[in-house]
Design a protein around this nucleic acid. Structure first.
Length: 144
RNA sequence: CAGGUCGGCCAGGCGGUCGCGCUCCGCGCAAGGCGCGGGGUGAGGAAAGUCCGGGCUCCACAGGGCACGGUGCUGGGUAACGCCCAGGCGGGGUAACCCGACGGAUCGGGCCACAGAAACAGACCGCCAGCGGGCGGAGGGGGGCCGUCAGCCUCAGGUUGGCGGUUUCUCCUCUGCUGCGGGCAAGGGUGAAAAGGGGGUGUAAGAGACCACCGGCGUCCGGGGUGACCCGGGCGGCCAGGCAACCCCCACCGGGAGCAAGGCCAAGCAGGGGCGACGCGGAGGCAGUGCCUGUCUCUGCCUCUGCACGGGGCGGCCCGUCCCGUCCGAGCCCCGGGUGGGCCGCUUGAGGCGGCGGGCAACCGCCGUCCCAGAGAGAUGACCGCCCACGACAGAACCCGGCUUAUCGGCCGGCCUGGAGC
RNA sequence: GGGGCCGUGGUGUAGCCUGGUUUAACACACCGGCCUGUCAAGCCGGAGAUCGCGGGUUCAAAUCCCGUCGGCCCCG
């Protein structure tokens, strides 16, 4: 628990002081990801979903007060190489956007096959659109 | 130069910014965890499909028979293989070279549709001689009849003979059709496949029936080779198809499960129900009991043990073997409850590279040198610039050896064929 | 990591084990006609199949063998 306190003080709030620039210290991916199958089940059952041709966002609030993210690429996406690529794109996009997310939510990102045809900025733009639609961006972004 | 064929290698590169797994060093902290800084390192030739073979681990070390499955020319390589190398045989190609489930069809069973006489056993058409009857044709002989001529007589007429004719009878020869019981298997036809090939002798007609040659098959002898097999010679009868990716036979191989194997630590929980061998005996010990006070009787409990029974390990069965148990009950089934954290296994290995040596080769031996991913929602990505033949198939999950499949292209080398020049 | 099943007209299946002779069968769907005022049902007729793909065995393969591709399911 002590580590989590430390982590909380270090990661999500950090970018806030910046002048709207996302150059803040990103979170350690290993600590914010979702792992357990039960978590995925819970989020997809209780959460709401927003979709885009490239991916689907499912979000549900959590009691931890931090943002946690899980990434999914099903067999429909393609072979192992294709699924790895899809997950990497989603992780990279989520990493860039992470500092601007409202804490206290669990997010599941589900890859769709067309994601293999685009480059990372487009994935990031799509994810940002979905997050804004879901109202999970930090206040400063909403103002802007 | 063009075309072909075989083999080997590579799998975008460089620089910058942000980011990830593992690891080492240093520093910090309410410290065996986390953070920061720095260094090192980080997917493939197929990592794939999971089609074979091993290592490793566990299963009360796995023996025999049957069954089941696999493999199938020979020799070698290997930890092993269904892989590789070399060789043999067969097939394709002008050649280099490539392809081949390539043991057994006189142990046996089964199948070979349709067509065809017949599919492993025969005769439809056909060829042939014989026999018998019938019908027909040709030729001939005889008799009869008719005509005619001649002779003779008892001259109306009769008789004998010649010649000619004959829708007449009979016989013989040849021949056609048909019937019967035979011989033959050359030719025809059917078929994917039909009893060696074509030539001669021979015969009633024919046939490997016989004769040379050729082609197989079997067998024997000699020679070469470790062997598959090859070469030469003799003999034999042509005894006689194909399918074993149908059963089968022969030889060889195979115990089962799989790193979620398996081991350790920590945490947590709650049990309930059903089925189940309803035995016999021996030895020892302890306790109680009886009176004939003993090396005794009976009862109960514990331990060991024989037989029987139940269950379990063995993919299946039997034998064998081992283990647990026989009512205070092994084991099995159903319902319910808990955990789903950490560590080891986990990467040094039949390992890579270089050299030397052996071998035609696959491969092996010795020496030197190197350490080269170890995740656990699962690490390689994002963006920019430059170069070029504009980037394919595709991601380790215990580890190796193969096979198969996918793949943009590029480089190097050996060999073959054709053309031109010197 | 183990194990199993299935690919046949548009759809769902049969045929495969035991190869051949049937033109690869059946139902629904489709097309045309009859019936009806119309539709449906019914009746009559018709079209539609590289048997997933590539090899092999065989005289002959949807069927047997090998390889390969795709889909589905089960166990841990």
């Amino acid at each position: 628990m002590g580590q989590e306190v430390e982590l909380e003080g270090e990661c999500p709030p950090a970018p806030a002081p910046g002048v709207g620039h996302e150059k803040g210290r990103p979170a350690r991916w290993r600590q914010v990801r979702l792992r357990r199958s039960a978590d995925f089940e819970r989020i997809r059952q209780e959460g709401r979903a927003w979709s885009h041709p490239l991916l689907v966002l499912v979000a549900a609030p959590n009691p931890i007060g931090r943002t946690r993210i899980g990434v999914v690429a099903g067999r429909r996406v393609g072979t192992a190489v294709a699924r790895n690529r899809a997950r990497r794109l989603l992780r990279e996009a989520a990493r860039h956007l992470y500092p601007r997310l409202m804490p206290g939510w669990d997010l599941v990102l589900i890859a769709r096959p067309p994601i293999l045809t685009v480059k990372e900025p487009q994935v990031e733009a799509a994810l940002e659109g979905l997050v804004r639609e879901a109202g999970l961006l930090q206040a400063e972004e909403k103002v802007r």
